[in-house]
């Protein structure tokens, strides 16, 4: 238990060093991993897995998953990503998914925020309201 706590603490410090202006710096991550893999300090495997977990969570914060009922097409996709960048004020990686279950509209997820403008969501809210 103690080991895992130490690993968490070290991983947190490493993450702090890797994040610059709210973005994960890829080259620093690589450098950290190289250092850990070659130096093999005590409990390094635990540190790496805790570090990987934290980096994944950090990356998810600036990763957008955009679902739509029908494929959006190049220009629309680019404008959605540009809008998101403007909103968050940082670089956003994006991933587009085709999900017919939405019936229509779009559902955007960035980190743990979800903007839902899908027809399915509206219908569900209507059902809740009418009860």
């Amino acid at each position: 238990m103690k080991g895992s706590k130490d690993a968490q603490r070290i991983a947190r410090q490493l993450l702090k060093a890797t994040v610059e202006n709210g973005e994960v710096n890829g080259s620093t991550v690589k450098a950290v991993l190289r250092k850990l893999a070659t130096g093999k300090p005590r409990g390094y495997l635990g540190v790496i897995s805790a570090y990987a977990h934290l980096v994944r969570l950090e990356l998810e914060k600036s990763h957008a998953v955009i679902e739509s009922a029908s494929p959006l097409g190049g220009t629309l996709e680019a404008s959605v990503v540009a809008d998101l960048k403007g909103k968050y004020g940082k670089q956003i990686t994006s991933e587009f998914k085709h999900n017919p279950e939405l019936l229509g509209g779009m559902r955007v997820r960035v980190g743990s925020d979800v903007w839902d403008g899908s027809v399915r969501n509206r219908l569900e809210r209507l059902r809740e309201k009418i009860g």
Partner: peptide, 12 residues
């Protein structure tokens, strides 16, 4: 009333 709104929620 539902037409225009896009809902924002927090998920996990």
């Amino acid at each position: 009333s539902l037409k225009t709104s896009v809902t924002k929620s927090n998920v996990g």
